[in-house]
Design a protein around this nucleic acid. Sequence first.
DNA 1: AACCAGGACGTGA
DNA 2: TCACGTCATGGT
Length: 254
Amino acid sequence: MGKIKKDGVGKLNLTAEEMNGLYKRLYSYYGPQGWWPLRSKRIAYGAGFDDTIGFNTSGYHPGIVYKPVKDDIFEIAAGAVLTQNTNWKNAAAAIDNLIKNDLLNTRKILESDIEELALIIKTSGYYNQKAIKLKNVAELIESKNGSAVSRQELLAVWGIGPETADSIMLYAYHRPFFVIDAFTRRILSRYTGEGFIQKAGYEILRTCIEGVIPADINKWQEMHALFVIHAKKFCTTKPECGACPLFRACKKIK
DNA sequence: AACCAGGACGTGA
DNA sequence: TCACGTCATGGT
């Protein structure tokens, strides 16, 4: 067995109270985000949607009815892949280009020429790798013939790591897996003052967070989206602590 | 002009 | 397990 993984868990002192306070502060400041930023939502929200960062910046739009369609699942999976280590704006441009070429569904992706596909998603960076990844996810989704994919199946796909898998599970399939990204780590480590959060392994941190936030799919979706928007607005690499809505509660660890 | 952006994978130690 | 190199565009 070797090392005791509990060493890692033991150093994480994140509490449900802290998490709840953080959620309430972010939610009251930014409002519901209604993620995932599907293009149908981006269009529906119109001017209220900041497509450079993938957020509805003008508050909730209760009058707008979002109608899910079959290809949404692949759009989310594709977006999760295309935004790997890349800003959303570049990924969104790639998605728009896929739409322009009528390629945003599993069958068309599988039929597409991989070198042409790579050029179509060029703006997202790593486009040769991502072209392969898109085909791989499309293949998995297509093979399930409409039934939901599992996290394990996603992780078995070349190009789908834990964060991408969890994004797909949480936002496309509405399953309870909390998404851990660099922003989540940065905000939580600063806010709680626990430097160890930056070093904790993915699964350790994920299960820890899942244990301190109420098991509510919508809340998990919102929490992750709130982490991302806050990391872009204030908790950047060089944070804007002066105007930050979390200033008073934050432990401010760099 | 370095640095960052909603990572994942292969390799060597 | 873990640190490090690779993949790559586009904005600040």
